[in-house]
Amino acid sequence: MSDIPGHLPHRFPFLLVDRVVAREIGVRVVAEKLLTAGEPYFLGHFEDRPILPGVLMIEMLAQAGGFLETEPLHGQAIFLAQILDARFKGPAFPGDRLVLEVRPEASFGGLLRIEGTVSCEGRILCTAKLMLKKMLPPNAPGSVPGAPARQGLAEKGP
């Protein structure tokens, strides 16, 4: 799958998936991100020693997780609601081709929990579990009555 912008609303410089190489809806997604020397975050992180900020690996997994969904995510309000057990095992540099693999763990009430791995040439660089929240209209099927969103989450908007 190569029409990434057709599915994800993210755009340069924050579209962090280049292509999807395997996609079984609701089961597994394998995507890739090629780190070029021109990525804007390499300019200052760091000036003489470019290295991918670890938090961006988390964002890459979240974006790859978007492809577990059948429908394009345009116009939907989706937030990162929780990060669990994030481990950064190695650095990523310009020129690295990162493989992003995600699987769903569970879903309930508009929340999807996924587990993901970022690797490069067989080396695991990052593993994490992420909770993604799709905002549902109040009283829609699947919204948990009396269960407010985490404080602060509701105000952020799409």
């Binding site: 609601a81 929780q82 879903s107 309930f108 009430g109 929340l111 909770m131 269960a147 407010p148 985490r150």
Partner: peptide, 9 residues
């Protein structure tokens, strides 16, 4: 909250 709900599931 709803995050706890998924944890309970």
């Amino acid at each position: 909250d709803s995050i706890d709900a998924l944890e309970l599931v």
